[in-house]
């Protein structure tokens, strides 16, 4: 207990004494966390939006003839052979007509006298709603096209491809900003600790001479790294929350464009980001201690 009290006091005192470099490091860590968490937030929400849009995501396979039950099983088997799907529905010509009638509603009178089998039979394939299924949808469509009796395969080609490209871009940007976070936090913290070690060389030698243990000397530096990581991450996430609230306000109101279910991070994610940043800063601090603190 006494050990931690002394170590915390040492770490805090050192941070106050070197407040300029500490401030710079905190700013850098905060900025890195802000950049990373911003793109990660967009990415996570894009995935979420993708899942919601996926409710309408289906491949419609038009057939030249309504398949009898044994053939339906054959189609089902071939479809499942390519990829997992959420469900497969066979729509007969009559069912298609009824749907069309339903869609037209009061205007369905126009269909009076039209034969009920004028629409083609089809298979509606609902892929599993994951990013991977989005990426495979083009190939899935091409595959379905090769099945016997298929006239045409339809799906929301353009938006899916654009959305997929967007998600891919966000994934790359998130990875890059994640790498930036790792590099800046570890390097900046390592650099700050190194400067502190050089500045306090005399004191560290003295501590050794008066009987300080290795842990007594090292732990304040690790704690310093942890504090930089933790406080920096809180700062970055706090800034992101302010930004998020500001953007939400801009899109609020009856005449504004509503953001479709754009949500902030849940608590476990917030804790994970703070934990990750803290760990990275401890790693930076540890590497500096290993390289420059010779006890």
């Amino acid at each position: 207990m006494r050990f931690w009290a002394v170590v915390i006091r040492h770490a805090c005192r050192n941070m106050l004494l070197t407040w300029k470099s500490q401030g710079m490091t905190l700013f850098t860590v905060s900025l890195s966390v802000l950049i990373f968490s911003f793109f990660y937030l967009v990415y996570v929400n894009a995935l979420h939006i993708g899942e919601q849009l996926g409710d309408d995501l289906r491949l419609v396979v038009y057939l030249d003839e309504a398949p009898p039950s044994p053939l339906q099983e054959e189609y089902r088997r071939k479809i499942l052979k390519f990829d997992q799907v959420e469900r497969i529905e066979f729509i007969s010509r009559e069912q298609a007509f009824k749907r069309f009638e339903h869609i037209l509603g009061p205007g369905s009178d126009v269909l009076t006298g039209v034969p009920t089998d004028f629409l083609p039979a089809s298979i509606e394939v609902y892929p599993v709603r994951t990013l991977d299924s989005l990426s495979r949808i083009k190939r899935f469509s091409d595959y379905l096209q090769t099945l016997p009796g298929v006239l045409k395969v339809q799906y929301g080609k353009e938006w899916i491809e654009r959305f997929y490209a967007f998600i891919q871009l966000m994934r790359v940007i998130t990875l890059l900003s994640g790498s930036l976070l790792i590099m800046t936090t570890t390097f900046m913290v390592a650099h700050t600790i190194r400067l502190t070690l050089f500045a306090r060389q005399q004191e560290l030698e003295l501590l050794r001479l008066v009987g300080a243990t290795n842990n007594y000397i090292r732990t304040p530096f690790l704690l310093e790294g942890a504090l930089q990581g933790g406080i920096g991450a809180c700062g970055g996430l706090g800034a992101l929350l302010v930004l998020y609230n500001w953007i939400s306000l801009q899109f609020a109101g009856p005449n504004a464009i509503s953001l479709p279910a754009f949500a902030f991070f849940k608590w476990p994610v917030v804790v994970a980001i703070i934990g990750l940043s803290t760990l990275l800063c401890i790693a930076g601090s540890f590497s500096a201690i290993r390289r420059f603190l010779h006890l």
């Binding site: 002394v6 501590l207 008066v210 009987g211």
Partner: peptide, 8 residues
């Protein structure tokens, strides 16, 4: 104080 702090 340094000499006394190291012995808690």
């Amino acid at each position: 104080a340094i000499a006394l702090e190291v012995v808690y």
